[in-house]
Computed example of a mutant assay.
Amino acid sequence: MVHYRPTNASKRVLDKNSLYLIDSGGQYVDGTTDVTRTVAIGKPTAEMKRHYSLVLKAHIGIATARFPKGTRGQDLDPFARRPLWEAGIDFDHGTGHGVGSYLSVHEGPQRLSRLGSEVLEPGMILSNEPGYYREGQYGIRLENLILVTPLTKIEGGEREMMGFETLTLVPFDRRLIDPKLFDPSELAWLNAYHARVRREVEPLILSDDRPWLRHATQKIG
C-alpha cells in the first residue's frame, strides 16, 4: 500500500526480517518537512536489497538531474522511473510533489509526475520520492526534499541549466544497499551525501548518538 493507515482490520506487527517504511515530517518556523525512509528489521533478503537499490538509483536520478529553463515536472518524471522500468517494475504515484510553508505539505502547482505541466522555477521546493510496492509483502519509498537551483552555465555548454539541491539530511539504510547495482557516479553521489549528513548533523546530536551516525554514513563501495 502506498499510504498505510492502521485500523483494527489492517494493523500488523513489525515482523523480523522485514522492511519498515516510515513517512514523516513536521511544520517548523522556517518551513515544512516531508521525509520517507525504509529500514530493515532483522536481515533483509537479496530481493529486498535489489528493490531498495533500484529505488535509490531512481532517487539519485532526480537528485542529479540538470535541465534547461522551461522544463516541466512531467519532463523529469522518467528520470526516476528508468532504473525501475529496466527491471520491469514501476510505482503508481508521482515522483514528487510541491511543498508549502504553513500550508499543505502537498502544495502545487509544481510537481514531478506524468501530470506535472507546471514549469519548474528556481526557488521551488519539491519532494523526490520514487518507490516500489510488492503487494502483501513490503513497500519501499525514499524521500528527500529538493530545491530548484538558479540557472548556471556549464563549462563547454551552450545553455544555462538548473538542477536540484537536496535539503533533507537523513542517512539511507546501508544494510539495504547493494553496491554492485550502482555505477561509479551514483556511488560518488551517495557517499558525498552521507559525508554531508555526518558533517552537518553530528554537531547537533548528543554525543551518545554520534557513533550510530558515523556507522550509518560510512563510505559504501
Rank of each mutant, 00 (worst) to 15 (best):
P122Y: 13
E118R: 11
E135L: 13
L147C: 06
Y102G: 09
G139D: 06
P130K: 10
E143N: 15
T152W: 04
E155V: 10
R114K: 11
S101P: 02
T95M: 12
Y102S: 11
G123V: 07
V119F: 02
L151S: 13
E155H: 12
I146T: 03
N128F: 04
E118Q: 14
K153A: 12
P171F: 06
I125P: 01
L120R: 11
L120D: 04
G116Y: 03
N128Q: 00
P122Q: 10
E129H: 11
Y133G: 04
E135T: 11
L147W: 04
N128M: 10
M162G: 08
G136I: 15
Q110N: 05
Q110F: 04
S113M: 09
R134L: 15
I146F: 01
V105A: 04
I140R: 00
E160D: 12
G123I: 13
I154Y: 04
I125Y: 02
L167I: 08
L112V: 09
P171W: 01
E158P: 00
G157K: 11
L115E: 13
E143G: 01
R159F: 01
Y102M: 08
L151Y: 07
G116D: 03
T168Q: 05
L142W: 00
E107K: 11
P171S: 09
S113P: 06
P109Y: 08
L169M: 12
T149V: 05
L112Q: 03
E118P: 00
G131R: 07
E107Y: 09
H93I: 03
E165R: 12
S117P: 05
G108H: 07
P150N: 05
L169R: 14
M124T: 06
I146A: 03
Y138N: 06
K153D: 10
Y138H: 10
P130W: 03
I125C: 06
R134P: 03
E107I: 01
P122D: 14
P109T: 08
N144W: 01
H97F: 12
G100C: 02
S127Y: 03
L145D: 00
F164I: 08
S101C: 10
V170E: 13
P150G: 02
E143Q: 14
Y133N: 06
L147T: 03
G116W: 04
S104V: 10
S117K: 10
E158R: 09
G139P: 02
V148R: 05
R111K: 12
N144A: 07
M124L: 10
G108W: 07
G100L: 04
Y133L: 06
L145E: 09
V148N: 11
G94Q: 13
L103R: 15
E143S: 12
Q137C: 02
G156H: 07
H97T: 08
E135V: 13
R114L: 09
